[in-house]
Design a protein around this nucleic acid. Structure first.
Lengths: 146, 146
DNA sequence: TAAATTAATCAGAGTCTCTGACTAACGTCA
DNA sequence: TGACGTTAGTCAGAGACTCTGATTAATTTA
């Protein structure tokens, strides 16, 4: 007689399943991206971002961000360019290779979500999204509040 | 105009909030437990568990499990005893100190859940749990299937 | 009983993260 | 305008967590 999982575990199980689908799709498309690298990659602005900005956004130290950007640079996902407005700074920019990741990740996400919708039905899927969106109001420390 | 977060992110945000509440409560009660240690600790059977069993259950190698059990042993949360049924094996057992973690963690979880209930209302909280429980049917790789 | 398997450990390495110290460039203000 | 404090980034060193490969000891199988 297995116990009821806690709400925390119930949230984690599908989250993890989604994450694994996305990384599996990236891997299948020839992209060996780690979770840590992705955390940074997602935060790089269209016009490039400074290391400090990435570090702050991803909640890691500048040293950690530098270590991850080094890796992403070596594997061809980002490049560093001088920042024209400040000679101390450099802009981390996405390469074409990095831009190719987005559609792959989005497709895997959309496919997984479609399977969930098929299993839950539209009503319950809407209820799930609604409840999670409202829950975010009190659990997201970075949510913009009006 | 911030985009709608994906369902994956929406799941992750409250999960992470819950996890942080639990570890903060443990920390406040004087227990410095890491996520990796907790993953093992949760899987130790009432009568003790073998290292191999813990490793398999937590999805890590035996070496990793050994490394974590060493730490937990040093900090007084587990002890190793010979397995009377097999001289190669040793049983990892919870100490009293480890047993003291459970009520602290459960209380933090219950408090957080109560806040969520107050914010969402009973109807939406029930819908959330229902949707997540059904979602588990297709996203939990370790779910017992009848 | 010899061979294969299983339980655990040792050794070495890679990833991710941190703190502390440093250099170079920028901004301020007396 | 020049000294001072701040900011951007890097270097060095360390700790946590994870892995692969090799080893030892005990058990199970053929």
């Amino acid at each position: 007689m297995p116990e009821e999982p806690s709400i925390g575990v119930l949230l984690f199980i599908p989250y993890r399943a989604m994450e694994e689908r996305v990384f599996a799709a990236l891997d299948a498309a020839g992209h060996e991206i780690t979770r840590a690298q992705m955390k940074l990659l997602q935060r790089i602005d269209e016009d490039g971002s400074r290391l400090s900005a990435l570090a702050e956004s991803a909640q890691v130290t500048k040293q950690t961000a530098g270590y991850l950007v080094d890796q992403l640079e070596r594997t061809g996902y980002v490049e560093r360019a001088p920042d024209p407005t400040d000679a101390r700074a450099r802009l981390v920019r996405l390469t074409e290779r990095a831009r190719a990741l987005h559609p792959v990740a989005r497709r895997a996400e959309a496919e997984t979500e479609a399977e969930w919708l098929a299993h839950l039905g539209k009503r319950r899927m809407d209820q799930l999204r609604d409840a999670l969106t409202r829950l975010r109001e009190i659990t997201d420390p970075y949510l913009e509040r009006p």
